[in-house]
């Protein structure tokens, strides 16, 4: 399989019109869209994520890349679905009860989608019931985000709520959250940034990367 350099670079640089044109042409030509996704689009998102983690790319660059990715996915998804392409796993993402700060959560959503996960965006100010609904809808991992030290303790309630469900992994992240805090409350995973969230979810779910 080969990488489509033009598509890869268009996503990396957030050039959504180019992505749109390539994706539409691929569908029209009945090209191998799964190959485009796996060999060009997902690697481009992985590269921008890696650059983001190294502070070589910043949030605006992540957002425009993700927007370009989404433009391509919107065009390719019907074809992918018709061919029986399955997402890697289903993941729920939300900010915990009391916390309305969602930029970090949105970046995690972007990166997970870009890595091939199906994401249930539970939104902001989520209590355990909202996360429970997502789990009932098939999410095998729950990613909780908090910006505030005042809302961070609610993560413990989420962890405790799902404590008896071994098949559901709880991951946490956000500005005040640390690996030590994740261990203290018994979370299954922790991520330092949006790109790290992909790795953490992948590891927690035992998925080969």
């Amino acid at each position: 399989m080969a990488q489509n350099e033009e598509l890869y670079n268009a996503i990396l640089k957030g050039k959504r019109k180019i992505v749109q044109a390539i994706a539409e042409q691929a569908v029209a030509d009945a090209a191998d869209v799964e190959e485009l996704l796996m060999e060009s689009m997902i690697p481009a998102m992985k590269e921008i994520g890696d650059r983001f983690s190294r502070n070589e790319a910043y949030v605006p660059e992540m957002l425009i890349a993700a927007r370009a990715m989404q433009t391509g996915l919107d065009i390719l998804e019907p074809v992918l679905a018709a061919k029986g392409h399955e997402p890697i796993a289903k993941v729920a993402v939300g900010t915990v009860k009391g916390d309305l700060h969602d930029i970090g959560k949105n970046l995690v959503v972007i990166m997970l989608k870009g890595a091939g996960f199906e994401v249930i965006d539970v939104g902001t100010d989520c209590d355990v019931q909202k996360f429970e609904e997502a789990v009932n809808d098939g999410a095998s991992a729950v990613c909780c985000s908090a910006l505030l030290t005042t809302t961070m303790p609610y993560m413990k309630e989420v962890v405790e709520h799902f404590a008896t469900k071994d098949d559901v992994k709880i991951l946490i992240g956000g500005a005040p959250v640390t690996q030590a805090y994740a261990e203290e409350i018994g979370a299954d995973g922790f991520a330092n940034d949006a790109n790290g969230a992909v790795n953490a979810v992948t590891e927690c779910l035992g998925i080969a990367s």
């Binding site: 983690s53 910043y58 930029i103 956000g174 330092n192």
Partner: peptide, 9 residues
Amino acid sequence: SYNNGPMLS
């Protein structure tokens, strides 16, 4: 900025 540095370059 956020916990990993500035949001913009």
